[in-house]
């Protein structure tokens, strides 16, 4: 099976232009599992393209002027855990900490997480709450797609055959952010329910995203806009009734399934609890910091 090692984005574009049976390989932590499991099949005419050889894909650009964090698709979980990225997008760092094990975080990339389009993708949930967008590149040019619109169902996306994810643009939001994830053990576990909350007192916005409770990561719009208006941004507080209403709306926006990992009713219950706790903690923390 042929393997290509492009060394630039230009190179990569050309390879994708010329060949249509291409498999992009980043950290391989989803790809290899699929291959071993048999759900991913490689035919002899497939060309594997090694994205790790494209150094440009691993760049991180922190642009405080335009309030944008530009994350190359090849940036690995371990690079997201702390430092300037944690300052710029704390809930993304928190989601990174919940991913797999040290080994997985050393190999796996944010681009791979987005491209895989798992309804349980931890990074994706944080990115949706941050209103991030995917920058898709091909020889035809470039387009931006909101992360929330990128996946169309479990493992299906809007990406075209000749495109790749070049980077993810993450708005830098002042305020407080948090990510929580439930699994049936204390580490190295696929999310049974996850939630990200972004609270911005400056722009008076609350944005909520939910994981593992629908076919894709869910942007809980009705709950977000209700919370946005219900929160008293001057005092950083919300009434118990209103918070209960947020929880109610969160649960209504979820459409989870029963499967071997959990039940729909537990998932619905759990995302509500997670969001409630995150908002409470966020508001408390904002209040304490002023």
């Amino acid at each position: 099976m042929p393997i290509a090692h492009p060394d630039s984005i230009e190179d990569l574009k050309e390879i994708l232009r010329a060949d249509t049976s291409i498999v992009l390989l980043a950290g391989g932590t989803d790809f290899m599992v699929g291959l071993n499991h048999g759900s991913t099949r490689l035919e002899s005419d497939h060309l594997i393209v090694d994205l790790r050889s494209v150094a440009e894909l691993s760049t991180v650009e922190l642009d405080y002027r335009s309030k944008m964090l530009r994350l190359g698709a090849g940036v690995r979980w371990n690079d997201l855990l702390s430092g300037p990225i944690e300052d710029a997008a704390p809930c993304l760092s928190q989601s990174a900490r919940t991913v797999g094990s040290h080994q997985i975080r050393t190999a796996g990339t944010i681009g791979g997480n987005v491209a895989t389009a798992s309804p349980a993708g931890d990074g994706v949930c944080a990115l949706v709450a941050l209103d991030a967008s995917v920058v898709l590149t091909s020889h035809r040019g470039q387009r931006n797609v909101a992360v929330r619109d990128f996946a169309t169902g479990p493992k299906t996306t809007v990406i075209e055959k000749d495109e790749f994810i070049e980077r993810i643009d993450v708005p830098i939001v002042n305020g407080w952010q948090g990510y929580s994830k439930i699994g049936t053990r204390n580490a190295m576990v696929i999310s049974v329910a996850g939630a990200a909350v972004v609270l911005s007192p400056d722009s008076q916005i609350c944005r909520i995203a939910l994981g593992s409770v629908g076919p894709t990561i869910i942007a809980a719009d009705s709950a977000s806009s209700f919370a946005t208006t219900a929160i008293d941004w001057n005092t950083s507080s919300v009434s118990t009734d209103d918070l209960d209403q947020v929880v109610q709306l969160v649960r209504e926006s979820a459409s989870p399934i029963n499967d071997h990992r959990s039940t729909a009713s537990y998932r619905t219950h759990a995302v509500g609890v997670l969001v409630k706790r995150l908002i409470e903690q966020g508001l408390r923390s904002i209040k304490e910091s002023v």
Binding site: S180, I182, N186
Partner: peptide, 17 residues
């Protein structure tokens, strides 16, 4: 310790819970 509470690495739980 991040793993010291129920939920472990998932960051679900505060001591008060």
């Amino acid at each position: 310790h991040p793993y010291g509470l129920p939920g472990g690495a998932g960051n679900t739980t505060r001591s008060s819970d």
